[in-house]
Design a protein around this nucleic acid. Structure first.
Lengths: 191, 191
DNA sequence: GTCTATATTCAGATAGAC
DNA sequence: GTCTATCTGAATATAGAC
C-alpha cells in the first residue's frame, strides 16, 4: 500500500523532530500520533516494540539527514576548514529566528538514554561515528594521517554538540560562532 | 529545627544528582523522595511550587559545587591552560569506572528545558555564565583583554559540555581527553 | 510541622471492533 | 489491516490525619 510507506515515513519524520526538540522522556507517543495525524494503532503496527524501537529509527532518520548535509558541504568546499565552518554556520543560522530551532541532532536523546538503554545509546553512538568519519575522510583527502584525522573528527563533533547545547540554552548563536572561529586553529593546513 | 535544614539539604543533594544523571523528565519526584528517604510532604513543604522550583534550586546547588572546584583549580595552578586541563582531566576521570558517572553538570537539564521553562533556562544559563566568568577572570589575570577572555571562557565551556556529552554516549573518556589536548592551541600565552 | 493516603492526569501499551 | 476504546501504572500534586 502507498499509505503504508507514507504512514511510516510520516511517523518517523514527526518523531525525529520532536525527539530532537523535546528529548526522549519529554516526547509522548500521544503527541507524535496527534501531530502526525495518524492513529495509535498505526504506530504500533509499524513499530511493534513501541517507543524505544521508534526512537532508534528516529535517531537513524535524523543521522542520515545530517550525514547528507555534511557530505554535501564536504564535496562543495575545497578544504576541510571551509566545509566545517560552513556546516557550523548553517547550524548556527537556525538561532536567527527562535521559531526555527530544530533541536540537538541526537545529543539530547543520547544524554538522556546513554545510561538506561543500550540499543538507543548504540544508535546515537553510531550516528556520532558516521559524522566523525565524514569529517575524517575529508581530512585524509587533504593530507592528514588517518589517526590524526579520526581524532580531529571526534574533536569537531564534540565541539559542535557542546556549541548547540549552549546556543540552545542562551537562545543565541554566539557559542556556535565562537567555535566556528577557532576551527582554523585546530585544523591546520597540511602538505 | 535541625531536621528542617537537613531535610532540605538532603532533598537538594539527591535531586541534583538524579537530575544530572537522568534529566528533568527522566527523574520523578517519587524517586527523589524514595532515595532521599524523606516523605513527599517534606518535599512540598520545602519546595511548595513543586518540581520546577526544586529543579531550579538543584541547578544552583550543582552550579555552586562546580564553581568551587573550578575556582580551586584556578587558584592552585599557575597558568590558565594548566588549570583548565586539570579540570577536564578531573571530569574525564569519572569515566574510568562506569559506576562513577555523575552525569552532565546541568547540560542535559538545560537542553531539555530551554524551550519549555524560562525560569529553568535562566538558572542553567546563569550556571554557564558563572563558570565562564571564573575562567575569564583567570585569563585576564594572565594578560588577556576582557573581551577575548570572555569569548575564550565561553568556548572552553561549550567544548567541555560537548565533550561530556560524547564521553557519556560512548562511555569512554577519549572525547574529553582530545579536548584537553587542544586547549594549549586555543589559550596561547600572553605577555 | 511531619508524614500518609488519595486525587487526578497522562504516560505507554493493548484488545478488539469493523 | 485500520482505527477506536480501554487498561494499567506512574507522574505531579493535594488534602488532611496526627
Amino acid at each position: 500500500m502507498v499509505s503504508k510507506v507514507n504512514s511510516r515515513e510520516k511517523i518517523l519524520q514527526t518523531a525525529s523532530r520532536l525527539f530532537q526538540l523535546q528529548g526522549y522522556h519529554g516526547t509522548g507517543l500521544n503527541q507524535i500520533i496527534k501531530e502526525s495525524g495518524l492513529p495509535k494503532g498505526s504506530l504500533y503496527h509499524h513499530f511493534p516494540n513501541g517507543k524505544e524501537e521508534l526512537a532508534i529509527e528516529a535517531v537513524q532518520y535524523t543521522s542520515k539527514f545530517i550525514e547528507e548535509n555534511l557530505q554535501k558541504l564536504m564535496n562543495e568546499k575545497e578544504g576541510p576548514v571551509e566545509a566545517i565552518q560552513a556546516f557550523i554556520r548553517d547550524t548556527a543560522s537556525q538561532f536567527d529566528n527562535l521559531e526555527d530551532i530544530k533541536g540537538i541532532p541526537v545529543g539530547l536523546l543520547a544524554s538522556e538514554t546513554a545510561l538506561i538503554s543500550e540499543p538507543l545509546r548504540n544508535a546515537c553512538m553510531q550516528a556520532f561515528k558516521n559524522w566523525q568519519m565524514i569529517i575524517a575522510k575529508k581530512l585524509i583527502q587533504n593530507g592528514y594521517e588517518k589517526e590524526e584525522a579520526t581524532k580531529k573528527g571526534l574533536l569537531v563533533n564534540s565541539m559542535i554538540g557542546g556549541g548547540i547545547m549552549h546556543s540552545l540554552t542562551s537562545k543565541d548563536k554566539t557559542p556556535l560562532l565562537v567555535i566556528m572561529e577557532v576551527i582554523p586553529l585546530l585544523i591546520e593546513k597540511k602538505g
